[in-house]
């Protein structure tokens, strides 16, 4: 078997806070190891509370931050010695939490698509860029005709997030790093984004690193998960096995804190009560 798509071994990130004399060191990520996509495309979820180092980890995978220790290999090549930055970006694309912050409110959203098409898909003319944009938008259930000339505030959050995914797809990446992609999206649109990730994995063969604190959607789409707390991995393995039967006390606490929509139905006639 060839090398996995992404391989992290003992990755750590230390931030120094304050001056040399009174400062202290914060270990945002502390000894994380995992692999993504050894046996074909998969959805790998990183779960944790705020401040658990999820986003720092995402930035290191995207090579916008360098690990203080450990190695990150993409297709067997160390990210630290990467020369071909554009070539790497073509293969690894990000999706961010808040689509309204990811797009400049003063620019039309289609411009982002054209720019990505010119830079990463080799589109030489405006017409070619438009073709690439339209093809990517169709994969996410939109079309260029709907988007052309629109500003971010003219689209709903769910639409804009799908445009962000389409933009990532123009480069035909092998890996998408999605940092809390549904936490700003309405519950009714959340499933359309999550289902889209499934389609990307199954039909386009894209692996996805899905960073979230929402255990229910992670259970629904992911193949494998790692649960993080304070920079350390507390539990990792197949998503459903772990969430069905968590072993670590923190994973158990996390699972118990998930509000079940069935609580009220079970308590019919009584007040649904949180105890």
């Amino acid at each position: 078997m060839t090398a996995p798509l992404l391989e992290l071994s003992d990755v750590a990130k230390v931030y120094s806070i304050g001056g040399a004399l009174f400062g202290h060191r914060l270990r945002a990520v502390d000894g994380i190891s995992f692999e993504v996509g050894r046996d074909g495309p998969e959805i790998f979820a990183i779960i944790g509370e705020s401040g658990s180092g999820k986003t720092t980890l995402a930035r290191m995978i995207l090579n916008t931050a360098q690990p203080s220790a450990g190695k990150i290999l993409f297709r067997g090549a160390d990210l630290a010695g990467m020369r071909d930055r554009l070539g790497f970006m073509r293969q690894v694309q990000p999706i961010f939490q808040n689509p309204f912050e990811a797009f400049n409110p003063l620019k039309r959203v289609d411009r982002y698509l054209y720019m990505t098409a010119r830079r990463f898909a080799g589109a030489a003319t405006q017409a070619e860029a438009g073709d690439h944009a339209d093809r990517a938008l169709r994969k996410v259930g939109l079309s260029l005709a709907e988007i052309r000339g629109r500003f971010p505030h003219e689209l709903s959050g769910g639409q804009l997030q799908r445009v962000a995914i389409a933009r990532a797809l123009i480069a035909s990446p092998a890996l998408i790093v999605a940092d809390e992609p549904v936490s700003m999206v309405d519950a009714s649109l959340r499933m359309s984004i999550v289902n889209l990730f499934k389609t990307l994995r199954d039909d386009l063969g894209v692996s996805i690193v899905y960073i979230t604190h929402d255990l229910a959607t992670a259970y629904y789409i992911s193949d494998r998960i790692v649960i993080m707390r304070k920079g350390r991995a507390v539990e990792a393995g197949p998503a459903r096995a772990i969430l069905d039967n968590p072993q670590h006390p923190y994973s158990i606490e996390l699972k118990n804190a998930v509000l079940s929509p069935d609580a009220a139905a079970r308590l019919y006639g009584n007040r649904p009560i949180m105890e």
Partner: peptide
Amino acid sequence: LREPRHPYTAHLIASLPRIGDVAPKKAL
């Protein structure tokens, strides 16, 4: 939650992901 009457409410409830449930959910 047990018996939604409006199709919109029914959709909101049916599309809720649950731990332990992997049946495909449709988005509106």
